[in-house]
């Protein structure tokens, strides 16, 4: 029971160092691997060089949906909760956004309304978990099914996605958000992801919400006894996750120029993978927004990089194995940290 701080040996300090910085080593290792491997026979990496500008831009562009979600998802997991519905929320937002655009709503209102939808979806999760006290896993499995069903229903029968047809056309500005070069040849979607991440880093380090999230996940009894409204904290976090899922949906929809009701399928798993890879403990309390962002970059680089080496049908296997490996190593490291 008793533990002594003076016994935290150099080994413990090493574990803690590892926990804080390993993700950057992994990032460097992956970049080195992908840049030195001779991949020029494959189409995506031109001239066999990973660190080639067009290639980097391409990867960052397709990463935008995952990058924008990673931060909010981290804060939610830090508070000890989980959201399995983010993929469906993302799909639904993509569909809503495309529908608004195709029906002539201009960019800004369409964007704002879609984010509002995301907020509502998050509020539904928050309501089920906080108010009705349904286990987070079950509650968000329910909404996974619900949001997906609504997304599918919104798309006309016999059509696979919202896209330009005979009468209605997707407007020309639609894919500007996800593709048009804004700054350093990167699109707005990417910069929004960066801005959201920066904002959440500030929230985590300087905001009341970030602190309350850590307290709720770390020691819920202590948090409640200190007068923290843990229910409101969790509700707010679900709402933020919902909003960021909507931003992801907009980014994906804009990049692909269509509103695909299945576009977010499996995203919840990638989000969990990224957050675990970033060292967030699933027991709560522990985790950093920035590290998840880096984790998301790594996963996207590997996914895109992998496509140049092996066929696409290896993807599920690799992501699944990575999830298990991340969960196992994360668990071992965080347990060692706790024991010391």
């Amino acid at each position: 029971m008793t533990s002594y701080s003076n016994q935290t040996s150099s080994a413990a300090r090493f574990t803690s160092f590892l926990r804080n910085y390993y993700i950057y080593f992994v990032l460097v290792a992956v970049v080195v691997l992908l840049s030195t491997a001779n991949l020029d026979q494959f189409a995506l990496f031109e001239r066999g060089n990973f660190l080639y500008k067009r290639n980097i831009i391409n990867i960052l562009r397709v990463s935008a949906p995952l990058l924008v979600m990673a931060g909010a998802f981290t804060l939610l997991m830090v508070s000890g909760y989980i959201d399995l519905s983010v993929g469906s929320a993302m799909s639904l937002s993509a569909v809503v956004y495309a529908m608004l655009a195709i029906n002539g709503v201009p960019f800004i209102p369409a964007f704002a309304l879609t984010v509002l939808v995301g907020v509502l979806l998050g509020a539904v999760n928050g309501f089920l978990v906080v108010r009705l006290n349904i286990t987070p896993v079950i509650a968000t499995l329910i909404t996974l099914s619900l949001f997906k069903g609504v997304a599918l229903l919104l798309v006309q029968d016999g059509v696979s996605a919202i896209k330009s047809g005979n009468f209605l056309k997707i407007p020309g500005w639609f894919n500007d958000y996800g593709r048009a070069k804004v700054l350093f040849d990167l699109p707005a979607a990417f910069w929004v992801a960066v801005a959201v991440t920066l904002a959440l880093i500030v929230v985590q380090n300087r905001g009341k919400l970030g602190k309350y999230a850590a307290a709720t996940g770390g020691n819920p009894t202590a948090a409640k006894l200190s007068g923290i409204n843990t229910g409101r904290t969790v509700f707010l976090l679900y709402v933020i996750v919902g909003a960021s899922a909507a931003l992801a949906g907009i980014a994906r929809s804009s990049f692909m120029s269509l509103g695909d009701p299945l576009s977010g399928d499996g995203m919840e798993l990638t989000a969990i993978l990224v957050v675990l890879l970033g060292g967030t403990a699933f027991s709560g309390g522990e985790g950093k927004v920035l590290r998840s962002f880096v984790g998301a970059l790594i996963i996207m680089m590997l996914t895109v990089g992998m496509l140049t080496i092996v066929p696409a049908y290896y993807q599920t296997l690799v992501i699944g194995s990575a999830l298990l490996a991340a969960a196992a190593s994360n668990h071992l490291v965080s347990r060692k940290g706790k024991e010391s």
Binding site: K211, A215, G218, N219, A222, I228, G285
Partner: peptide
């Protein structure tokens, strides 16, 4: 009733920020 994951100072002001 302290939160291990926070700093000492954060714990001192917890709930009274």
């Amino acid at each position: 009733h302290v939160v291990d994951e926070l700093t000492v100072l954060e714990n001192l002001t917890l709930g009274m920020e």
